[in-house]
């Protein structure tokens, strides 16, 4: 049985989650629901839940204040939010689950399924540390959480030189010539990193503009990165790419 706590300042939101959890009454048990940050902290500390449905904006405080107050988080967090762009970015970076309000049934089901399978992994505290770190930092200073075969890897954005697509996998190349194979599409990383000086020069290549050493002219041209890899620039991306490096 998965023990769940709901923290949200609006009762109708709590009611919605309760309603959505009805089909899961055999697997998920709601042990407490709170409408304030302090009540939430107390509940978590005393009841030790497996999963917490956490609202981002709680009166004049946030869900992050709840997490900061917990010394050794040992639970999965699912954030619920209406439309907080900066928070969503942070969730994405830290690989923290989130649900957008009004919460869609299908999305909710997927989130619960994920929680049930991931509970064994027990990387909660690390992920939460990463999230708290990312919330206060600029995009470049952020760390991205990368699920690998061995578990989670936390990688600073600034050490990533480039990403290369391999169908549904992506290989990440770091500054110290380390390679990471991730089961995510290049599109996923593009969406994540596009505001951190990354540019998709090709269908299969996303590069960090900070690591460009040289650009050779051609139909589309080629870029040489500091790790001496030579990456082809797609003809259609050439103009935008040149604009990007000029602004860079």
């Amino acid at each position: 049985m998965i023990k769940a706590i709901i923290i949200d300042d609006e009762q109708h939101c709590i009611d919605r989650i309760v309603a959505l959890l009805k089909p899961f009454k055999n697997t998920v048990e709601i042990i407490e629901s709170c409408t304030t940050v302090s009540a939430g902290i107390e509940a978590i500390e005393s009841l030790q839940p497996d999963v917490v449905f956490l609202d981002v904006q709680i009166h004049d405080k946030t869900g992050f204040d709840v997490l900061k107050a917990i010394k050794h988080p040992a639970f999965e967090v699912i954030f619920t939010t209406a439309f907080e762009f900066y928070a969503v970015q942070a969730f994405k970076f830290s690989a923290i689950d989130y649900l957008l309000k009004p919460i869609d049934e299908d999305d909710f089901r997927l989130a619960i399924d994920k929680v049930s399978t991931k509970l064994e992994a027990k990387d909660f505290s690390k992920k939460i540390t990463a999230l708290l770190n990312n919330i206060s930092k600029t995009d470049i200073q952020k760390k991205i959480t990368i699920p690998t075969v061995d578990g989670l890897e936390f990688l600073e954005v600034s050490v990533i030189v480039r990403c290369e697509a391999d169908i549904n996998y992506t290989t990440i190349f770091t500054k110290d010539r380390h390679k990471l194979m991730v089961s995510k599409t290049l599109k996923y990383f593009e969406a994540l990193l596009v505001n951190c000086n990354f540019f998709r020069v090709h269908n299969s290549h996303l590069i960090n503009l900070d690591y460009i050493k040289k650009y050779s002219k051609g139909k589309g041209g080629y870029v040489t990165l500091t790790d001496d890899s030579v990456i082809e620039v797609s003809t259609r991306r050439k103009d935008d790419f040149l604009k990007a490096i000029r602004c860079h």
């Binding site: 919605r16 439309f83 957008l100 309000k101 009004p102 919460i103 869609d104 049934e105």
Partner: peptide, 13 residues
């Protein structure tokens, strides 16, 4: 209606 609205919210977003 609630389910319907939720779907619509998704489209809007």
């Amino acid at each position: 209606a609630s389910t319907y609205l939720t779907k619509f919210a998704k489209i809007m977003r």
